[in-house]
């Protein structure tokens, strides 16, 4: 593994221990099966696999959006199974930033307002600080002049960068991105990827990104490959998939 060795006794940022997710119903569907992985601070991890292999499902489990039906997910060594929805929501708010394949911005709010929403919910900064921070983040993603625009006035790539800015708003140690470049052209893809890369390198955050793009995956430090809900390989990105 290429993950920087965590200090002994320092629990990893996120762990899955035999985590599985089965959708109940007359014909149960297995989304994720027996996933065990450990992701530490400062890692840039790609999750790859064919369509329908359970990449998104795994990401939802890691992001505490979904409950595993077997096994468990730990954040900083802390079991999440016993948490109620409110505790999980608080944990998401402060420690996990999501970027979805579709930007999922609130359509009526400006880019700046969208970025401010998680900060306002957390409520630790003053109005002025929130605004300043949102402007800074947008500027660092090359959107300094677009803060006042609504999502429908932005290009796809710009929207996705706003989504990244929103994920960064509360300064979370972990960013989970589900095909953040899935709907973008090559140029925009490059931009968004560079931003994620910068987040890892310069800010020391952890980014876990689902991607179809093997080129992109190749540029990350570590690649987890899924087939039919199972982790079939988990190794440095440059190594060929088993």
């Amino acid at each position: 593994m290429t993950a920087p060795a965590a200090a002994p006794g320092d629990p990893p940022l996120i762990e899955a221990l035999h985590a599985g997710r089965v959708l109940g119903g007359t014909v149960p569907v297995t989304l994720v099966k027996d996933a065990t992985l450990t992701i530490g601070k400062g890692e840039f991890v790609a999750i790859t696999g064919p369509s329908g292999s359970g990449k998104s499902s795994l990401l939802y489990l890691l992001g505490l959006l979904d409950h595993p039906t077997s096994g468990e997910v730990r954040i900083r060594g802390e079991a999440t199974a016993g948490m109620d929805d409110d505790e999980r929501a608080s944990l998401r708010l402060a420690t996990i930033g999501f970027v979805f394949q579709f930007h999922f911005l609130l359509p009526e709010f400006s880019a700046l307002a969208n970025v401010m929403i998680p900060m306002r919910r957390l409520g630790v900064r003053s109005d002025r600080e929130m605004r300043t921070r949102a402007e800074e983040i947008l500027a660092s993603l090359g959107l300094a002049d677009h803060g006042h625009k609504r999502p429908d006035q932005l290009s796809g790539g710009q929207r996705q960068r706003v989504a990244v800015a929103r994920a960064l708003a509360n300064d979370p140690p972990l960013i989970l991105a589900d095909e953040p470049t899935g709907s973008l052209d090559t140029k925009s893809t490059g931009q968004v990827f560079d931003i994620l890369d910068g987040i890892v390198r310069r800010e020391g955050r952890t980014v876990v990104a689902v991607t179809h793009d093997l080129d992109l995956a190749g540029r990350m430090q570590r690649r987890i490959h899924l087939v039919d809900g199972m982790i079939v390989s988990d190794k440095a990105a440059t190594a060929p998939v088993a």
């Binding site: 959006l65 929805d85 409110d86 608080s90 999501f98 999922f104 609130l106 998680p118 919910r121 957390l122």
Partner: peptide
């Protein structure tokens, strides 16, 4: 519904 899902995924609670 989508906005609700977005807000909840960002960390808003059911009570919110």
């Amino acid at each position: 519904a989508r906005d609700i899902a977005i807000l909840k995924s960002l960390g808003f609670r059911a009570a919110d």
